[in-house]
Design a protein around this nucleic acid. Structure first.
Length: 284
DNA sequence: ATGGTTGAAGATCAA
């Protein structure tokens, strides 16, 4: 009998290809892009979505980002504030018909279509307004902006809800669950955990048919934080964190989630951001 | 109830 040509071994492990997607509020890409090396070592992401780049596109350190192993880069930045970017090892096409939220042109969202294993994946990188200090839209226009932004994003998500292979992530600046904050009772009046914000985020998830990819892995009765204030004397000792950063996926991808990582150690790095990177791995 | 820290811009605002 003739010898068969050697075929690659197909096992349960190799039959599906992995896609690791990470999000990080970098709080100035020009200041902190060298820290991405540590994120690559720890999380090995195929795609890294950034928020608060605080950098106009013409000043983006694009060669440095490419040298970190991400040949495909898209950014939407402005002077001083806000700004989002997508760094990728795999090709993608930038979406160009997504809304201009609240008609502000303020660089809080970047949508792409990834050339992912098994077909395209729609990916949205969001930076939701923080909302200021007072949780009252009649006296705090930043809070009004935050609620308006989430309402618009909710309506938009309705138009995406039936699409498959969707991921959205970013700094959503809302910690929806009791154990997404260090003290549910003490934060009920604190912007990021007020009932009106929680209701708005919950509605966004419901309307968009979004599945919480981090709570997929971590039960709702366990504390989970992605942000610790700069204002604590000792962030780790106080551990007064909040889960402000999120990864959501469409329901068809829920069964493809295989792993997550919240890189808490990054909060202790030299020149740390107040947010830590979060990664989710999909088997596609 | 307040203040605490950081980044970018520019002597203050946003977070």
């Amino acid at each position: 009998m003739a010898k068969q040509p050697a075929a690659p071994a197909v096992t349960a492990e190799t039959a599906r290809r992995s896609l690791r997607i990470a999000t990080w509020n970098i709080n100035s890409v020009r200041l902190r892009h060298p820290l991405i090396t540590g994120i690559v070592q720890a999380l090995n992401p195929d795609v890294l979505c950034l928020q608060e780049t605080k950098c106009p596109d013409e000043h983006l350190p694009i060669e440095a980002l490419k040298a970190l192993g991400f040949p495909y880069v898209a950014a939407k930045g402005m002077k001083g504030y806000n700004g989002v970017a997508v760094l990728s090892r795999i090709p993608f096409v930038q979406r160009d018909n997504d809304p201009d939220w609240c008609l502000k042109g303020d660089c809080r969202h970047l949508g792409v279509e990834l050339d992912a294993p098994g077909g395209p994946v729609e990916l949205h990188d969001f930076y939701v307004p923080a909302g200021g200090d007072v949780a009252d839209r009649t006296v705090n226009e930043k809070f009004a902006h935050k609620l308006d932004f989430v309402a618009e994003a909710t309506a938009w998500s309705a138009t995406r809800a039936t699409a498959t292979r969707r991921v959205m992530l970013g700094d959503l600046n809302i910690a929806p669950l009791e154990h997404d904050v260090w003290s549910h009772k003490q934060l009920l009046d604190v912007v990021s955990h007020t009932p009106i914000e929680v209701a708005a985020l919950t509605e966004w998830m419901r309307v968009g048919q979004w599945h919480d990819a981090l709570r997929h892995f971590v039960p709702a009765d366990q504390k989970l934080y992605t942000w610790w204030s700069y204002r604590a004397k000792d962030w780790a000792a106080a551990n007064r964190g909040r889960r402000l950063d999120h990864v959501w996926c469409s329901p068809d991808l829920a069964g493809n989630l295989v792993r997550h990582q919240v890189l808490q150690e990054a909060r202790g790095w030299e020149k740390a951001s107040d947010h830590v990177p979060v990664m989710v791995e999909l088997a596609l």
